Simulated scan of single mutants.
Amino acid sequence: MRPRIYLGDNLSIGPGKIELLKQINIMKSISGAARALSIPYKKAWSLIDVLNQGFGGQVIETSIGGKAGGSARLTPLGQKIIDSYEALEKKLNKSAKKELDAFYSLLNIS
């Protein structure tokens, strides 16, 4: 189960934004993360902006580069968002095992 959490009228956090943050952490690049997730660069920046505005702080830091290009990395806030989401996801999956198993059992119906 991959939850989407609504934290008000203008902010939600779910698998897409979490995967974007994870890919930025791996690739050290917003454009690289966008390519890895097959989303447009502009969409990736838009999702980051939503997180920045919603959480009231920067979730990534960027640096402008020369020939080698710039880079991006998670801020402590960005890492805390990933950690909190993954902890909640793990807890939800564990506590809802019986109900999730019931859904999976329905897949075996002919």
Score class of each variant (00 low, 15 high):
residue 1 M to Y: 07
residue 2 R to S: 12
residue 2 R to I: 13
residue 2 R to K: 14
residue 3 P to R: 09
residue 4 R to I: 12
residue 6 Y to W: 07
residue 6 Y to V: 09
residue 8 G to R: 01
residue 9 D to S: 15
residue 10 N to P: 00
residue 10 N to K: 08
residue 11 L to F: 06
residue 12 S to D: 13
residue 14 G to T: 03
residue 14 G to C: 01
residue 15 P to C: 10
residue 15 P to H: 11
residue 17 K to Q: 15
residue 18 I to E: 06
residue 19 E to G: 07
residue 20 L to W: 07
residue 20 L to T: 09
residue 21 L to C: 09
residue 21 L to V: 09
residue 22 K to A: 05
residue 22 K to R: 13
residue 27 M to Q: 09
residue 27 M to C: 02
residue 30 I to P: 00
residue 31 S to P: 09
residue 32 G to E: 06
residue 33 A to P: 03
residue 33 A to K: 00
residue 33 A to Q: 04
residue 34 A to V: 11
residue 34 A to N: 05
residue 34 A to C: 09
residue 36 A to T: 05
residue 36 A to Y: 04
residue 37 L to D: 12
residue 38 S to N: 13
residue 39 I to R: 01
residue 39 I to F: 08
residue 42 K to V: 15
residue 42 K to M: 12
residue 42 K to W: 10
residue 43 K to H: 14
residue 44 A to T: 09
residue 46 S to K: 10
residue 46 S to L: 12
residue 49 D to Q: 10
residue 51 L to A: 08
residue 53 Q to H: 08
residue 53 Q to K: 11
residue 54 G to Y: 02
residue 54 G to E: 02
residue 55 F to M: 01
residue 55 F to C: 02
residue 55 F to K: 00
residue 57 G to T: 00
residue 58 Q to A: 13
residue 58 Q to E: 14
residue 59 V to L: 08
residue 60 I to H: 05
residue 60 I to Q: 03
residue 62 T to L: 03
residue 63 S to R: 07
residue 63 S to T: 10
residue 63 S to M: 06
residue 64 I to V: 12
residue 64 I to Y: 07
residue 64 I to T: 11
residue 65 G to Q: 02
residue 65 G to D: 03
residue 65 G to V: 00
residue 66 G to Y: 11
residue 68 A to R: 12
residue 68 A to S: 14
residue 71 S to T: 05
residue 72 A to G: 07
residue 72 A to M: 05
residue 73 R to Q: 09
residue 73 R to D: 01
residue 75 T to K: 05
residue 75 T to R: 04
residue 76 P to V: 00
residue 76 P to K: 00
residue 77 L to D: 04
residue 77 L to E: 05
residue 78 G to H: 06
residue 79 Q to P: 03
residue 81 I to K: 02
residue 82 I to R: 00
residue 84 S to E: 06
residue 84 S to A: 15
residue 85 Y to T: 07
residue 86 E to Q: 08
residue 87 A to S: 11
residue 88 L to C: 11
residue 91 K to Y: 03
residue 91 K to D: 02
residue 94 K to C: 01
residue 94 K to W: 03
residue 95 S to D: 05
residue 95 S to L: 08
residue 95 S to A: 01
residue 96 A to D: 04
residue 97 K to P: 05
residue 97 K to H: 11
residue 98 K to P: 06
residue 99 E to Q: 13
residue 100 L to P: 01
residue 100 L to T: 13
residue 100 L to D: 01
residue 101 D to F: 14
residue 101 D to R: 14
residue 102 A to G: 06
residue 102 A to S: 11
residue 104 Y to R: 15
residue 104 Y to A: 15
residue 104 Y to S: 15
residue 104 Y to W: 15
residue 104 Y to T: 12
residue 105 S to W: 11
residue 106 L to C: 14
residue 106 L to I: 13
residue 106 L to H: 12
residue 108 N to A: 15
residue 110 S to E: 09
residue 110 S to F: 08
